[in-house]
């Protein structure tokens, strides 16, 4: 039964991947210079890049599958594994680094019980570090799904995950 369920799920993912890729290609055009943009749209919509999506992109752009796969593993914006609902990116740019961002990162690793690059078991959080968010004057900064939190401290970082969960909870109640 579990096997059948897994097969069914895989098929659902594959169907969705095809749909998402077809949308992206229709939007952006089937040319090689749009490969990264297409991958980005799929990544945004699905939270990761399933194999089925990569295969469909290769077909649509008439490009070897291997090339799509290489690009998907080369750039940091992409993940071949599902990411958490909230992606916490700790800026480790120079300005943030000299303002002690490594301690912020450690605090989050401790709080979430995961290492950089991993996702919590409940699928809520993925912890990443990024080169520079370009908000250097506000360092240390953290980005959560596009929202920037500036002037972080170890104490603020420790509270952040709970705060995010609470805010979300309030959001769904509205």
């Amino acid at each position: 039964m579990a096997v059948e369920q897994a097969i069914q799920e895989t098929k659902l993912v594959a169907d969705e991947a095809v749909r998402v890729v077809d949308d992206a290609v229709a939007n952006l055009g089937a040319s090689a210079d749009q490969l990264i943009a297409i991958l980005q749209q799929v990544q945004r919509t699905m939270g990761y890049l399933p194999r089925a999506a990569l295969r469909r992109i290769a077909e649509a752009l008439d490009m070897p599958f291997m090339q799509v796969f290489q690009v998907a593993t080369f750039y940091k914006a992409f993940s071949l594994e599902p990411r958490g609902r909230r992606v916490i990116s700790v800026c480790t740019g120079t300005a943030c680094h000299v303002r002690q961002s490594p301690l912020i990162l450690e605090a989050l690793e401790r709080k979430l019980g995961i290492e950089v690059g991993q996702t919590t078991d409940d699928g809520e959080f993925t912890l990443l570090k990024v080169g520079c968010l370009g908000a250097c004057a506000l360092g240390p900064v953290i980005d959560v799904n596009g929202a920037v939190f500036g002037q972080m401290t170890v104490a603020k970082a420790e509270k952040l995950p709970d705060q995010l969960l609470k805010e979300d909870h309030r959001g769904t109640q509205k």
Binding site: A37, L39, Q40, V71, V130, G131
Partner: peptide, 10 residues
């Protein structure tokens, strides 16, 4: 001109 987004690579 077309805008193209990078994929995250210095």
């Amino acid at each position: 001109i077309k805008v193209v987004r990078g994929g995250g690579a210095f």
